[in-house]
Amino acid sequence: MSLPDFPSPVELDDGARLRSEVDDFIERDGQLLVLKGNDLTLLSHVASAAVLATMDEEQTVVSLAEILIDLYGVPEGVDPAIAIRQIVAVLVERGIVHALP
């Protein structure tokens, strides 16, 4: 099962390295408002955690999934491998996270 109301999972290997890059952000209670170029995005807690985890150091898809599972547990009825790629897809689509070559 995949996360409802999310885009299709991004096609990345488990070892693909991820990094977030933003122009500015404000954090309140673990949630981020992000400025990237002229675009603003208010992120959910789980997406915020993904961005923070990849901001100072790169993470692989697997290590990022582990961080999020540590924080929030495994989403019920959802394949974590698919869910992490769906969350990353949202962030990649907005230019906030990118896969390193």
């Binding site: 208010l42 992120l43 959910s44 807690h45 789980v46 997406a47 915020s48 993904a50 969350i87």
Partner: peptide, 8 residues
């Protein structure tokens, strides 16, 4: 409303 990237 919910923010981008789920409602967690």
């Amino acid at each position: 409303p919910a923010a981008v990237g789920g409602v967690a």
